[in-house]
Design a protein around this nucleic acid. Structure first.
Lengths: 251, 251
DNA sequence: GTTCCAAAAGTGTCTAACAAGTGTGCACGC
DNA sequence: GCGTGCACACTTGTTAGACACTTTTGGAAC
């Protein structure tokens, strides 16, 4: 991508920012957010490969903003874990290696399995999660990447359902990386959409039945399979969780 | 506190920053971090009361730095949850009300109880946690505030023991607020040090015995009591968890 | 007393610049 | 020829001053 492309793209953001009391308030409210959002999107798409250097000066020039603005956007992504950087060193796109994938998925499991237990204790089945799962089913086998959005929504709905502001914040600190992993899983076609959807459904059922322990166990299977398959795809040695348990095979 | 006091205090940080290749590298590496650390310390001490406004200009003048530097420090504390601010509004010290306390302690419980379960599954008793608990015992009934540091260390040791980078990061996003709560609990003398220490000990025993469920349950009691007593002290209506279960009463 | 307008205070962003740290390549000496 | 050290380019950290815009506040008019 050339500077010109970036400048063109930035045009929209300038509009949103400068005239942000008009129509498209939905977008980012500040220039920093707009740049961070755009960089994030480009990271998900894979346009910015792992290890690539992102200097403040280049970003400032590309988006036609001052360096401090670019700096703030970069620092935001560093805080999200999508970029890494040391003191006085230029920010680089975080490489998604097998060990990172395991770390991310295990961290998810820690938080989500406990959430399932507590939701099951009160038999609370969040409506948003059920809706999200229906949306997954509606996507069908069209484009695998279209599953990412409702899949993310399913899991965040569960987290948000506990109604704890800080739990949601903690999960959000993970969300960017989770989404990155999911995008990879889907673009590599590592999972069957029907299986994802079926397991989600079962998890909701178990919550409704008050069986938190079983729901947490199923979640571990659900996440574990995705995790180990992605690990394998990235060149790591997959664990046994990569296999597909037959009792949930569709058909 | 006057501007002069702040400027004096800042002198130390300038030294640490400018000459940070000499002796005291341990301190903050950047000016922004130094200011953030100082503000954090003053928040814990209670010098900055809840609701107090912290304008960028004032901070810049107080610490004798440029406004962007002060801005960065403020944004850091906002990210930690110690300050709150809206767009175009001046940052204020987050008020620690009953609902915040419940939110914070419940979020802790979500993460920590799951960690206990997983540690118990492998019967992993972290050495750091045991050490921290001995340090609590050593403090005795001297000054209640001295318990805060080893108490924090006990809990962070447990979290870090799972060896998951992102789990530690998530917990760290909570740590400042947890410490703030703890400081209040101790300065109000809401808990007996011996009880804290005894329950910590029991939790470690249960982990070693592989009884994760029991450890998690005890943690809920442990945190629940502190939570509800602090809620009561802050003017909220305490739940039943504020009571002291007799089976763990010292003596 | 209420409402509206204008000034003041404060934040978001930019430009320009200097200081300090990191890394690279080249010259020099062995 | 090869390793060491130094100088230079690149990049980040921080500052100063400035302007645009927003929120708040105070007063004036009704």
């Amino acid at each position: 991508m050339t500077s010109a492309d970036l400048s063109d793209k930035m045009g929209e953001y300038e509009l949103k920012s400068v005239r942000h009391n008009v129509a498209f308030r939905v977008a980012a409210t500040s220039i920093v957010d707009a740049i961070a959002d755009d960089l994030r999107a480009r990271l998900f798409v894979g346009e910015l490969a792992g290890g690539m250097a992102l200097t403040e000066t280049d970003m400032a020039a590309s988006y036609d903003v001052a360096r401090p603005t670019a700096k703030a956007a970069i620092e935001k992504l560093v805080a999200e874990g999508l970029l890494v950087r040391g003191v006085h060193k230029t920010a680089r796109v975080a490489a998604l290696g097998p060990e990172s994938v395991r770390d991310i998925y295990l961290a998810r499991a820690y938080l989500e399995s406990e959430v399932l237990r507590r939701l099951a204790a009160t038999r609370t089945v969040p409506a948003g999660a059920a809706q999200a799962n229906q949306d997954i089913a509606a996507v069908g086998d069209g484009s695998a990447l279209a599953v990412v959005e409702p899949d993310m929504r399913f899991h965040t709905s569960l987290i948000d359902a506990v109604g704890n502001e800080r739990v949601s914040k903690m999960y959000r600190s993970l969300v960017s990386e989770v989404r990155l992993c999911m995008t990879r899983v889907q673009s590599l076609n590592l999972l069957d959409t029907a299986l994802i959807q079926a397991e989600h459904e079962k998890i909701l059922e178990l919550i409704g039945a008050g069986e938190g322990e079983a729901a947490a166990a199923l979640l571990d299977v659900h996440l574990g399979r995705a995790r180990e398959r992605l690990v394998a795809a990235l060149g790591g040695r997959p664990g046994p969780a990569a296999e597909l348990p037959s009792d949930l095979l569709p058909s």
